[in-house]
Design a protein around this nucleic acid. Structure first.
Length: 273
DNA sequence: AAATAACTCAACCGCTGAGCG
DNA sequence: CCGCTCAGCGGTTGAGTTATT
């Protein structure tokens, strides 16, 4: 395994940072700043390379960082921005104060992506517009972008986008009153569809759509798969989907949350009557 | 209680582009 | 223009933790 070019000249420590190292780095940067990361470890008395110091500062020590679980709103924002920007984690992080790109990236890979994969099995074609995820079944059963509701196709700024998936349905219809902290990267909404239940273009999927629980009382089911993640965490967003407070569950484990996101994701395959 | 599997997340690696001599 | 250094970014790894059998 090669070491960093910046570390070749000296012997550097690797692996987890000790509290002592954190303190040294904190003390140095808070008084001297970090005009040159390569010189930081030397001046701070650390046997680390500058790159490692930079990463530790950005991802862990930097003031203003939020720690802990992502909120419902944060998950929603990540979900939407990823749809727009793709794997531009640093760009996404700019819209989530206190969150690092690394944190968001980890969150995506361990939670949101998993949820999408899960629902892709439930609703064929749901991920047709997601370049990150293989969706071998999406081409089956006659799914086609031609089935898309034209009202949902955005025309402004499309060419600049990573991929032209319709996105703004999330804002009003899908997430309702989540008070998304919207950003200027969101394209203009074009002819927002009526607030009536969508019908999946694949007629056989309508039952699936119903089975997702939309407009039905939410009844939390134990999700063993995510238990370790949600352990000890209770939702603190009361404006979102109704969640039984006795159940320790994160919002993104809430089936209603996931299913509504699914509607967002499969919007290109919906017709509105 | 022990073994194993699954999961999380901090840290590392390698690439890219900007800045500079 | 070229080569070098450096910061920043996205992908990946692996140690530690937790859940399951």
């Amino acid at each position: 395994m090669r070491s960093h070019s910046c570390c070749d000249k000296q012997k550097v420590r690797r692996g987890l940072w000790s509290p002592e190292e954190d303190e040294k780095l904190m003390n140095y940067i808070s008084t001297h700043g970090h005009s040159s990361w390569t010189s930081v470890p030397k001046h701070a008395g650390l046997q680390r390379c500058g790159k490692s110091c930079r990463l530790r500062w950005i991802n862990y020590l930097r003031p203003g960082l939020k720690r802990g679980s992502f909120s419902f709103q944060e998950a929603a924002i990540i979900k939407e921005l990823h749809n727009i920007l793709g794997n531009k984690w640093s760009q996404i992080a700019k819209h989530l104060p206190g969150r690092t790109d690394n944190e968001i990236k980890n969150f995506w890979h361990s939670h949101l992506k998993k949820k999408l994969m899960f629902h892709a099995v439930k609703i064929p074609g749901a991920l047709a517009n997601c370049p990150e995820i293989d969706h071998p079944i999406s081409s089956e059963k006659g799914f086609s972008p031609l089935n898309a509701n034209p009202n949902l196709i955005l025309h402004s700024q499309q060419d600049q986008l990573h991929h032209p998936a319709p996105i703004t349905i999330l804002q009003g219809l899908v997430l309702g009153d989540l008070e998304l902290q919207h950003t200027n990267c969101c394209p203009t909404l074009v002819n927002f569809p009526p607030l009536i239940p969508p019908v999946l273009s694949d007629s056989s999927s309508y039952a699936t759509w119903s089975s997702l629980g939309y407009d039905q009382p939410y009844q939390p089911a134990p999700n063993q798969h995510d238990q370790n993640f949600s352990k000890g965490v209770t939702p603190h967003d009361t404006s979102g989907p109704m969640i039984n407070p006795s159940i320790k569950e994160t919002p993104y484990d809430n089936p209603e949350f996931s299913s509504k996101f699914m509607l967002f994701d499969c919007s290109t395959h919906m017709h509105f009557q």
